[in-house]
Simulated scan of single mutants.
Amino acid sequence: MSRIRILFQKKNKKVLNVYCTAGFPQLNSTIEVMQALEKNGADIIELGMPYSDPLADGPVIQASSMVAIQNGMTVKELFRQLKGFREKISVPVVLMGYMNSALQYGFEKFCEDASALGVDGLILPDLPIHEFDSYYGAIIKKNNLDFIFLVTPETSEDRIRELDKRSSGFIYAVSSSSTTGSDKDMSHVDAYLKKLSGYKLNNPVLVGFGIKDKESFEKASRHTNGAIIGSAYIKALQQSNDVAKATKEFLEPVLN
C-alpha cells in the first residue's frame, strides 16, 4: 500500500500538503526545506520541479522556479539530491512539474528513478487523459507511483468521475480557474467543494490555489480531506534566510 493511501487511512481530515520548489532558495536547500516541513506538521510534501514555462503557476512560484533554474536545478540534480532522502523524510513526497521535464529526462527512466529514490507520486498537469490512457499511465503504474489528476470548478461531473477512476493517491481540486497564489472568494469555492464532496469519489480530495493561512485552510478543509499551500509558503521562504525558522513561523499558525 502506498504511503499516500496509508496517510489517508490514518488521517482523513485537515491533511496538509505543502508545495516547495526544488533548489529554492538555494540549490542545496531542497532536503533542508523538506525536513523543516515534516518537522513542523506537513502531511505531504509536493516538490516542484522548476520549469521555465509553467502553465498553472502564479508569479510567486514562477519566480522561485527561475531562481532554482539559475541556481542550477535540473531533474538530474534533483534526483542526485534526493538520493537517500528516505533516511530523513517519512511523509509522502509527490513530484509536481510538467511533461517536458520528464520527457527530456526520458519518461520511463524518470518514473523508474523517482520510484527507486522513494518518491510516492506525480502531478503533471499537462499530461492529457488520452495520452495517460494510451501510454504513460501504464509506465507510472508499473513503477508503483500514484498519479494525481487536477479538477476545476468548470470540470463536468462525468469528467471528474473519469479522472477519479484513473487517479490514485488523491484528487487535486483547483479552487478556481486561475493560477496559483491569487486571492479567492472562498464562498464560491465552498459551494464548489460541497458539490464535489457530494460525488462520493473514490479518492480523497485536497484543494489548492489560494490557500495561505489558518482561515483559508480551515474553510478549504470543510468539505474535503485537506488542502495544499504553495505560494504563501514560498513567500515566507523568500522573506527569511533561515529555512527552519521561516517554516516553523509559517506553519504553526496554520495548524494551531
Rank of each mutant, 00 (worst) to 15 (best):
Q26T: 13
N28I: 04
T30S: 14
T30V: 14
I31F: 01
E32Q: 15
V33G: 06
M34G: 08
M34P: 03
Q35C: 03
A36W: 02
A36L: 08
N40V: 06
A42L: 06
I45L: 15
E46T: 14
E46N: 07
G48F: 01
G48P: 01
G48Y: 00
Y51N: 00
Y51V: 00
S52I: 07
P54C: 02
G58P: 01
I61G: 01
Q62H: 12
S64G: 08
S64K: 04
S64L: 06
S65C: 14
S65F: 02
M66P: 02
M66V: 08
V67Q: 05
V67W: 05
I69Q: 10
I69R: 15
M73G: 11
M73N: 09
M73Y: 08
K76G: 03
E77Q: 10
E77K: 13
E77I: 13
L82P: 04
L82K: 02
K83T: 08
G84W: 13
F85P: 04
E87Q: 13
K88Q: 09
K88S: 11
K88D: 07
I89P: 04
V91M: 15
V91D: 05
V93H: 14
V94Y: 05
L95H: 05
L95D: 02
Y98H: 01
N100D: 06
S101E: 00
A102W: 00
L103V: 12
Y105H: 01
G106T: 14
G106D: 13
E108H: 07
C111A: 13
E112G: 02
S115D: 06
L117T: 00
G118S: 04
L122Y: 02
L122C: 03
L124G: 06
P125F: 11
D126V: 04
D126I: 04
D126G: 05
L127H: 03
P128H: 09
I129W: 03
E131F: 14
D133C: 12
Y135G: 09
Y136R: 06
A138Q: 07
I139Q: 03
I139R: 00
